[in-house]
């Protein structure tokens, strides 16, 4: 390796001429910066390896303050149920529950919301035994659909008002989807 030059121009020390030499030394001296640079690199490596740049993100959730019975029209209700094994079922109004894949859920949410023009209420019921990650995955898909719904409704001159709720799964719900 070559000589690392840290101190700007360095002139070679000349032999002889004691007086002159003394003056030169005071003005331009060679400072060995190797240990400093070593430490700097060490610290840099440490901080680079230990930092996590991604901070966790959040998903906002709102629940109604009171558990009251709200009368809704059956035709404006979309019930999503997540069974114990993680399978998702949807039913419109009083229709029989239909199984649906997670990837198709977005299309369904967009289609039904646009068709009913903001009046659709989405109700999510998850089995207590389903892993929490599955519920978040479903919520995430619904959140993604929201963008598209807002856009499509805006084209019709409507402002999106989200109507969504989470409800506990009843035994009746369990029975309805148990055999599917």
């Amino acid at each position: 390796m070559g000589v690392a030059d840290f101190g700007g121009e360095v002139k070679r020390e000349r032999r002889g001429g004691t007086r002159r030499r003394k003056k030169m030394r005071r003005l331009r001296y060679r400072l060995d910066m190797t240990p400093l640079v070593d430490i700097a690199f060490l610290l840099l490596t440490f901080f680079m390896l230990t930092t996590t740049l991604i901070t966790p993100q959040v998903m906002e959730m709102t629940v109604p303050p009171e558990r009251t019975q709200v009368e809704v029209r059956q035709s404006e209700l979309l019930t999503l149920r997540i069974r114990q094994d993680g399978r998702i079922f949807y039913s419109l109004g009083q229709d029989a529950p239909q199984p649906i894949e997670l990837k198709d859920l977005r299309t369904l949410a967009v289609r039904e919301n646009v068709r009913l023009k903001n009046r659709l209420i989405t109700l999510l019921k998850a089995s207590p035994n389903v892993p929490y990650g599955r519920v978040i995955a479903v919520l995430d898909v619904l959140n993604q659909a929201e963008l598209e719904i807002t856009e499509q409704l805006a084209r019709e001159g409507l402002k999106r008002e989200r109507r969504f709720a989470i409800a506990p799964m009843t035994e009746q719900d369990e029975q309805e989807i148990a055999q599917l």
Partner: peptide, 13 residues
Amino acid sequence: RQNRATVFNFVTD
């Protein structure tokens, strides 16, 4: 909900 904390966040990655 009972404590009127109706808005909260789920932490995700």
